[in-house]
Design a protein around this nucleic acid. Structure first.
Lengths: 142, 142
DNA sequence: TGTACATGCTCTAGCAGCTAGAGGTTCAAT
DNA sequence: ATTGAACCTCTAGCTGCTAGAGCATGTACA
């Protein structure tokens, strides 16, 4: 039986995060000691490992919830899990493409900066005038 | 003189967002009509364009605050603006490297999935067992 | 001049996915 | 019995917005 701290250590999860997962229903309510402390077994360890691994791959918690459901029903078709993964892959590819464009623009800004004072700083100039940009980087935040 | 809605339209910013920028001190308090509605001039238009452009390039609001300060003092050395841009470039490059690793892993998951039921789904298997991963993707969220 | 109605106002709460802290309790070792 | 680390709950905060309630203003048209 593991304490919440031990569970956290084994999975690389902060204690608060484990409790948070419980709160939003991603982790089950565990057993408790007489004094009210959480104790975890192997099933919970596996589940949390699954969650953390999926998080490392960038899956949002809602997708992980679905994946856990699928994983709990071994007779379901795996098509759905596959489509969740494909969706995630697509997102990653989109973000990469966007970052690529940003990198190009930032490199250009930085390389052209000659080091005078701010009145002739290329970095600030480019920010002031969007038309100086070569690439499209319309959407914010992706 | 522009209403907040017109300003938003010109810069691709939602009205709420403009007010938010004012609230956190990134945009100045504008003049008001007798009835209390905000009215903006060209200086504010330029400032908001600057902010939005920097956001599109992924700069966090705090960095933008610094860049605006620098931009307001044309005699300062541009070294600082340069270093902010370099920092941002570095972050973009780090994120790209991370996404690259994730993409590889997700591609592998997806390509190996043969389409049976979930008990033998590669997607779920990989998530269950981290040791199946080829790449390191330790940190979450980057 | 009246009236419709788009747009404006403030205030509060919510999103993801945690993280940190206050103030108090339990557990395990000595 | 006592210490001290680790646990408990609860609340609030982070980034960068976004949405909605409930009301006021501004403008165009008849």
């Amino acid at each position: 039986m593991l304490t919440i701290g031990a569970l956290g250590k084994k999975t690389g999860t902060k204690v608060q995060t484990v409790r948070y997962y419980e709160q939003i229903g991603l982790m089950p309510e565990p057993g408790r000691t007489e004094g009210g402390q959480r104790r975890y077994g192997d099933a919970e360890l596996d589940r949390l490992s699954f969650i953390r691994h999926a998080r490392q791959l960038g899956f949002p918690l809602e997708a992980i919830r679905e994946l856990l459901d699928l994983s709990d029903n071994p007779d379901c078709s795996c098509a759905e899990a596959d489509s969740i993964a494909r969706r995630q892959l697509k997102q990653v590819e989109q973000r990469m493409a966007r970052l690529e464009a940003l990198r190009t623009e930032l490199q250009r800004m930085v390389h052209e900066c000659s080091g005078g004072n701010t009145s002739e700083c290329r970095v600030l100039e480019v920010l002031r005038d969007h038309s100086e940009c070569l690439t499209n980087h319309e959407e914010i935040g992706a």
